[in-house]
Amino acid sequence: MDTTIARASRVSLSRPLPNPWPVLSGMSVARSARSLPLCKPATTTLGTSCDTVSKVPFMTELNSCAQSAELTRRDSLLLLFSMALGDKAMAAEGPAAVKVGFLRHYKPFSYRDANGRPLGFDFDVASRVCELLQLRMDPVLDSLEGLAQRVKSGEIAWLGNQLLTTPENRRRFDFVRPAYASIQLSAVQHEDDDRDFLSLEDLLGKRLGVLAGTGVEEQARAVLGKTVKAYEHIENALHDLSHQRLDLVLEENLIADYHIRALRLPLKVAAPFAAPMTVGLGVRKGDREMQEKLSQTLQSMLKDGSLSRISEKWFGYDVSRSRVSHTASH
């Protein structure tokens, strides 16, 4: 399960393209037009002449001048016509495509709906990034290991999900700053529960729900033992908590926020269980140009309000600002 792989070592409870320009066929016309004789106004009262000014223009000179003028006009029209066709071809071609990688089972950040259409908060953020960079996004959904290999080979330009900047991930990616979402492991409680749970020791004898196969499960079992219940899908743990079959669920604040809001559960994200996680978009090692472009674009999104609008769509508030304790509105 990709979500499990991505988050297996995410937290520690102990720490409080340029667009191609087509070659225009009219360029050869333009070059040939430059070699044609040009007509210019004569300085005599006898009208126009060609390069040699004559007081009495001969018919051959006038014919030559007329033919030159006619060829010049025709070639100019051909040049303009070919340039217009080139502009239309460029418009039809559209922006250059760029491949962006996403975890395939990482709701609400990146996933596919029932029709196979890619969705998610990170997907929408990356779409806006590509819009500002005048690129057309070609999403690639894969496991974390598969995406890491694709980034390394240059098949995809960057990883559209924010990852923890762990030593392992730093060996595989360079990271983009700023991070656009504040992510923190937090306690999730029933909205009527006023108890404070600030550490695993506070949960001795209590029923705790966690996502199966994660570092959180491993650390919680080491302290609490059999009172820890692991779930394949965190939505099921939140459902049990809403019916008070659990005392607490530990989950990342944004994932909990999304499900509480989407499922209209009587729950709240309460006290943080760890310090905010350091995260960022991953790019190929040494790709400073892409790193800088993405950094500047994310800063633009933070300023122009587009990131806030995407956040409101998925979570109901601006996730670029830490908000770890609130009750869901119904």
Score class of each variant (00 low, 15 high):
1 M>W: 01
2 D>M: 07
3 T>V: 05
6 A>E: 06
8 A>D: 08
18 P>A: 08
19 N>P: 15
20 P>C: 09
24 L>S: 15
28 S>A: 14
30 A>Y: 02
31 R>A: 09
32 S>D: 11
34 R>A: 04
35 S>E: 15
38 L>I: 10
41 P>T: 10
41 P>C: 13
45 T>V: 10
48 T>V: 07
48 T>M: 13
49 S>I: 06
51 D>K: 14
55 K>T: 08
57 P>Y: 03
60 T>K: 09
60 T>Q: 10
62 L>G: 10
63 N>Y: 05
65 C>M: 15
68 S>A: 15
72 T>I: 09
73 R>M: 05
73 R>C: 05
73 R>A: 11
74 R>N: 04
79 L>G: 15
87 D>Y: 11
89 A>P: 12
93 E>W: 03
98 V>T: 12
101 G>M: 01
102 F>Q: 04
103 L>W: 00
103 L>C: 00
104 R>Y: 01
106 Y>A: 06
106 Y>I: 00
110 S>N: 10
114 A>M: 07
118 P>M: 12
125 V>M: 02
125 V>A: 05
127 S>C: 09
127 S>I: 03
130 C>D: 04
132 L>R: 14
133 L>P: 12
133 L>G: 10
134 Q>G: 08
137 M>C: 10
138 D>E: 14
142 D>Q: 04
145 E>Q: 06
149 Q>Y: 00
151 V>R: 04
153 S>Q: 11
160 G>R: 05
162 Q>W: 01
164 L>F: 03
164 L>E: 12
165 T>Y: 00
168 E>K: 12
173 F>L: 04
175 F>Y: 06
177 R>P: 04
178 P>N: 06
182 S>T: 11
185 L>I: 03
189 Q>P: 11
195 R>K: 11
199 S>N: 07
200 L>Y: 02
205 G>L: 01
220 A>H: 09
222 A>G: 11
222 A>S: 14
231 Y>W: 02
234 I>T: 07
240 D>H: 09
240 D>P: 14
242 S>Q: 08
244 Q>A: 06
246 L>F: 01
249 V>T: 10
249 V>W: 01
252 E>I: 00
255 I>A: 10
257 D>M: 01
261 R>E: 04
264 R>Y: 01
265 L>S: 02
268 K>E: 05
269 V>H: 02
273 F>E: 02
275 A>E: 15
276 P>D: 13
277 M>A: 14
278 T>A: 14
281 L>D: 05
284 R>W: 00
288 R>M: 06
293 K>S: 04
295 S>G: 12
296 Q>D: 13
296 Q>S: 11
300 S>V: 09
303 K>M: 08
306 S>T: 10
310 I>H: 03
311 S>M: 02
313 K>E: 06
313 K>C: 03
314 W>A: 02
314 W>D: 01
322 S>Q: 12
325 S>D: 14
326 H>M: 06
330 H>Y: 00
